[in-house]
Amino acid sequence: MNIFRLSGDVCHLVAIIILFLKIWRSKSCAGISGKSQLLFALVFTTRYLDLFTAFISIYNTVMKVVFLVLAYATVSLIYFRFRKSYDSESDSFRVEFLLVPVAGLSFLENYSFTPLEILWTFSIYLESVAILPQLFMITKTGEAESITTHYLFFLGLYRTLYLANWVWRYHEEGFFDQIAVVSGVVQTIFYCDFFYLYFTRVLRGSGKMTLP
């Protein structure tokens, strides 16, 4: 464990909590892409199957459970409790265009052709594109509430910190996981455009982020 990975995990947890509380307290999921949240729940489900077979540490187990619970709780808020406020019209990204290539690639490019390994690989590839429906929805509506942008900021920060974590681990331990790193770099690149808008608009105190 290193400071980059720990702070990355904390940012990830903060992002998920920010989103959950935003929906829970505003009793609305307007502007939130339910599809992205479904994809994240699928990422955690397919990645954390080793929850019962491999014990890494208390921290690892606790964080996996917390992420799974919060992911499914957020999905249930969007699709059940506050479904009237769900803007399915703007959340129109075709997720099959993500799931099919990701599933295909996880069968082609993996470390070993076993169910657990393929599902883990699937979750890694899926995580790098899971935010696209949300980013697409923001471009479609042309705006995002500032709390939603803070959620995206912490998600992007978590991914950026994971890149630093891999540099550190490569330098310290010679650790290098090609699938995770390549996929993580792709994922972080998707946030660059958002980061630019976030720093130039939201942090200038304009509150809402409106796209040009």
């Binding site: 990975r5 995990d9 990830h12 080793d50 491999a54 890494i56 540490s57 690892n60 964080m63 996996k64 992420f67 470390y111 883990w120 994971y162 974590n165 010679g174 650790f175 290098f176 996981d177 995770a180």
Partner: peptide, 10 residues
Amino acid sequence: ERHINPKDEL
């Protein structure tokens, strides 16, 4: 030999 990821990351 390829360094198998210990899958210790979240």
